[in-house]
Every structure is written in C-alpha cells, then in structure tokens.
Nucleic acid binder design. Structure first.
Lengths: 203, 203
DNA sequence: ACAGACAATTACAGTCCCTGCACTTTGAGA
DNA sequence: TCTCAAAGTGCAGGGACTGTAATTGTCTGT
C-alpha cells in the first residue's frame, strides 16, 4: 500500500464520495449518517470532515458547476442578434462537476433529481454561476451597446440580465420534458416559451 | 399573571422572538446559542422548539413574506399594457411579515440586511412567493392572450415569468440605492434598468 | 542512509441544534 | 367543581461538526 501522499488524499476523497452517493441512493438522505459513510469508507469521522466541510458536500460534490470555457468564447464571438438564444446555449454548457468519474457523476444526477432537497440545493449551486456570468455579459452588451449608454448602465443591465438568466435556469430545471444528460437543463422548451413571452413584456 | 391560554402562547412566542433578535443584533448569529435565547426569555429549550421549528425561525420570523391581497386585486384589474411595470408594483408590496410589532420588524430588517447569511435566507423566502404568483400571472396573461394560444402555453409563460420576476427581486435586493422600508426592494432602479434591457432581448 | 519536517489520519472529548417521551401545571368548558 | 386539553418542563439521546493531541507514514536535505 505505498502511495504518494497527495495521491492517498485523493483516493480517500473518492472513496468517501462513492460510498456517500451509494448509501444515500440506497437508503435516502436522512437515513444515512456520517458515521455510516465513514464505516463504509473505512475511515474515521474526523477524516471525513478533513476532506469535506459538510455531509452534503460529500454527497453532491465539493466543486459546484462551472461555465464551459469554450462555450464562453463562442458566446462572446457570436454576432447574432439573438442574445437570448446565445445565452441559453451558454447556460446549457454548465458543466456539472468533475467529469473524471463518469459513473459517479451519473449516479449523482440520479440521486439529485430524485431527492427534492438535493435538487433545490443543486439549483442554488447552478445559479451561483450567475456571479461569474456578469463580466461575460458586460463584454457582450458593450459590443452591442446603443450609443450614449454609460459603462455603469451596461453593468446594471448585465447584472439584471444575469439574474433573469438564473430564473431561466430554474424554469429549465423544473420544466418537464427531455433533458440534456447528465445536466438538468431543458433547453428547447425554455427557448420556445421565452419567444412567446418576451414580446409581451415590452410595451 | 392570569392570561388566557392562547394569549399566553402568543406572549411566549413574542418574548422568544424579541430576545432572539436582540441577542443576535448584539453578538452575531453564530455567537448566540439557543440556550442563550432560552435563558434570556426565561423558558426551557424544549419550549423554544415547541414554538419555533429552528433557531433561524425565531430570528427571522416563522411566517415568510406574503403578497398583499389589495395589490393583487389592483394588478389583475389593471388594463395597462405595461405588464412589467404592474408586476414591479405588485412585487413592491411583498409584506415582510407581521406588522403588529413595528419595533421588532424594524430590528429584524436591520439584522437581516447586516448579516449576509440571513440576507441570503430571506431572499430565498421572498422568492418563494414566486409559487403563489403563477396563478395570478395565468389570469393576467389569459386576459391579454393572443388568439391561438392554448391554456398550457399560457401556464408555461406564467411559470417562466414568475421565475424571471424572482430574478428581478434578487436584483432589486442587491442593487444599491434607496429602498422602500422596511422591505429591501429597490423599485425605481430595477424599472429603469429593465426598460433599457428588455428591448435588447427581442430580436 | 538518517533525521527532521510534514501530511494524512485517528481517538477522544465536547458543543450545538434538534427530537421523543413522560411528566406537571394551568386555564377553559361541562 | 371536575375534567381535559393545551402549555410548558426535564431528561435522555441522536447527529453534525470542531479542537486538540497523538500516531503513522512520507518527503526532503544532507
């Protein structure tokens, strides 16, 4: 059992994560205690909390969703007037965590989508990318800005828009219909409803 | 100290709430334990949890924000084409809890707005009115629907719109500038930014 | 190769939030 | 007045999480 120090740390984290997800899939969120996960993973409770700050983190993954860099570049390069369409494309590429363990990732999504409390939580985490999105939106809006708009106004618009996008994400998650796996986004439906709704909002 | 039974219950709740808010204002959220609140209120811990399901509930109030009935009636009666404007008016009348104790209410807002964790939490509670808003939006959208739209489409639109409104609320709370007291909504700013932004979203 | 720095892990004790249960007290209705 | 339900209490315990000191094994410089 000779392993490098950091490798040993990583393998312990993986073991914890895998056992946490498996146990919760089997018994449900509330029925699984940290002690159960520790025993299954063969570690002490203290070690558990050295790897993950909370029980939830071990279950849903410590790293939240991130925006895909390539998708951001495409979004910024696009000169299409269809800002909303481009935006939805960008949101669709929210990477749902570390893709190095496809099996774990898939199991996690099954777990999250079948546990209301976890779905709510993951929704909040997805929406937290809204913060990083503001700067991206500022760039895009600046390129297509009307003359006479100040940078402050642009930033306000980007800020508000990022919150509207967060709303779209929530709708996409809750809306029924086919989803892109392993993510929960229902893109087509959202796009269709938006096309009907938006014209009604401008007077 | 002879009081009717239910009145005694109410006064205990009030005592707990007042001491909870006061102590957290003095010492901060994490530094105040349930035991401290109980001692200050002169009750047992068990009684505390008979009145409030969690420590947080005693601090921010068990009843979340509600939409104002009169505002809803006005919103539905309006025939203005400015749906967004009417919507913001409606949102502005989110009642921030029981108005029977103005002092407590004011102290709570001071507490919530100065404690990031509580602000985040209260934001979630305000946004939960989004659920009740869907039915209201269905009525309004039905009255101004284009011919050929099915009830299902209308409901989808209302659902998405309610999520967009939730985004507006978040923006309103975070946006700097004057707020309506004791609520956190910055109405004018949101309206102005929306007027600039929305035309850019329709192609 | 050896010693010391250092990282991963552990056992243990303790805090805090919260719950279930059995019990007492007290006010309200018959 | 008698009775019963509601309000409150005491206690025992579960479960998440933290601080600390100790242990084990690995890395680094010489």
């Amino acid at each position: 059992m000779e392993r490098s120090r950091s490798a040993r740390h990583a393998v312990t984290s993986r073991t914890i994560e895998e056992n946490a997800v498996r146990l919760v899939l089997e018994h449900g969120l509330d029925a699984v205690t940290v002690d159960m996960i520790c025993e299954a993973a063969g570690i002490s409770q203290r070690t558990f909390f050295n790897h993950f700050p909370t029980k939830i983190d071990a279950i849903v993954g410590a790293a939240g969703p991130k925006v895909d860099e390539a998708a951001v570049r495409r979004f910024l390069a696009s000169s299409s007037p269809d800002l909303v369409g481009d935006l939805l494309e960008l949101v669709m590429h929210l990477a749902p965590g570390d893709p190095s363990n496809p099996g774990l990732m898939e199991a996690r999504w099954r777990l999250i989508t079948t546990t209301p409390a976890l779905l709510q939580l993951e929704m909040d985490r997805m929406i937290s990318v809204q913060r990083e999105m503001v700067d991206i939106l500022v760039m895009r809006l600046t390129r297509h800005a009307n003359s006479g708009e100040t940078p402050e106004e642009i930033r306000d618009q980007a800020d508000l828009l990022s919150h509207l996008v967060a709303g779209m994400i929530r709708f996409s998650i809750e809306a029924p219909g086919p989803r892109r796996m392993p993510g929960p986004i229902n893109l087509e439906r959202t796009r269709a409803v938006l096309r009907q709704l938006l014209p009604k909002l401008v007077d």
